[in-house]
């Protein structure tokens, strides 16, 4: 149940924990009381590790299909505390917040999902509904880059995706030993090897900002219109509902107007170094 004070989180319990890699886990969360609030792919929740702090984390699953799924990488105090949670532990959750991936807008054309590192988690929440309603889209491709083979997420599920005839999956890593049988190289370089019709394609990109900028440049070079390229931005957040100004990005608030923005809306802002 949602608290009337927007800053007060609801109490959730960890139902399951999946270890994705050495520093990343997926948490399956259930509310102690009431229902999981309705959310859409691309949105995020504020997760509160008691006594430590609160951070924004995107949804990596779907609403109405079991627990609320969040994939968290341990980088600092709060995310480390979240990654240490075990089934039965509790945490605070508030949300959902932010703009979703514009899946309905992408229907009828090709869909490219371009993920870097942990960016696969928010894009998983876009891929699953697109696969569930596969007939609504033209070609679908997932391009996924990570640092090394050991850092690749959702191993088993990726195997299922790769074996589907109706989804092109391109996985590439920055560094590997000769034992790795897959591709080595950066994600933007794989865009020219992807089968899609740029004039009727939408691209959803999520990953470190530099990787997103290079990917957007490669997509533009391939002929995808800027209004059809969507990036999910990360900025530090506090309130998550456009009150505190912490996530201000030029004239926009990432928590309210984003995190998913169309490239034509933010291209100019991305080039301003101070933002």
């Amino acid at each position: 149940m949602r608290s009337p004070d927007p800053f007060v989180p609801s109490l959730f319990r960890v139902d399951r924990v999946w270890r994705e890699s050495a520093d990343t886990v997926t948490l399956g969360l259930l509310p102690i009381q009431g229902e999981i609030p309705a959310f859409r792919s691309g949105q995020f929740f504020m997760l509160y590790a008691f006594g430590i702090g609160e951070i924004p984390v995107s949804v990596s699953g779907l609403w109405g299909q079991g627990p609320l799924l969040h994939t968290v990488r341990a980088v600092g105090p709060v995310s480390q505390a979240l990654c240490r949670l075990r089934p039965g532990d509790t945490l605070g959750v508030r949300g959902p917040y932010g703009s979703p991936w514009p899946l309905p807008q992408a229907e009828g054309g090709d869909l490219l999902l371009i993920a870097g590192g942990l960016g696969l988690a928010p894009l998983r929440s876009a891929l699953l509904p697109a696969l569930a309603e596969r007939e609504r889209y033209g070609r679908i491709a997932l391009l996924y880059g990570a640092r090394s083979p050991a850092d690749l997420l959702f191993g088993e599920e990726r195997g299922d995706w790769s074996s589907r005839g109706d989804l092109q999956v391109e996985v590439t890593v920055d560094h590997a030993s000769p034992a790795w049988r897959g591709s080595v190289g950066v994600v933007p370089a794989r865009i020219s090897h992807t089968r899609f019709a740029p004039e009727r394609a939408h691209a959803f990109v999520c990953g470190p900002e530099v990787m997103m900028r290079y990917s957007a440049a490669a997509l533009l070079g391939a002929g995808v219109p800027p209004a059809r390229i969507f990036l999910s931005l990360e900025r530090n957040m506090k309130c998550a509902f456009a009150v505190c100004g912490r996530c201000q990005f030029g004239p926009t608030f990432v928590c309210r107007d984003g995190p998913v923005f169309s490239y034509d809306r933010i291209a100019r802002l991305l080039s301003i170094r101070e933002l």
């Binding site: 870097g116 590192g117 880059g145 640092r147 190289g185 470190p208 900002e209 530099v210 290079y214």
Partner: peptide, 19 residues
């Protein structure tokens, strides 16, 4: 130019370190 840009991106180690 494409390969130089790709190498730059690889060198940045964007997935490994803090942004």
């Amino acid at each position: 130019v494409q390969r130089l840009e790709a190498v730059r991106l690889q060198l940045l180690d964007v997935y490994g370190e803090t942004p």
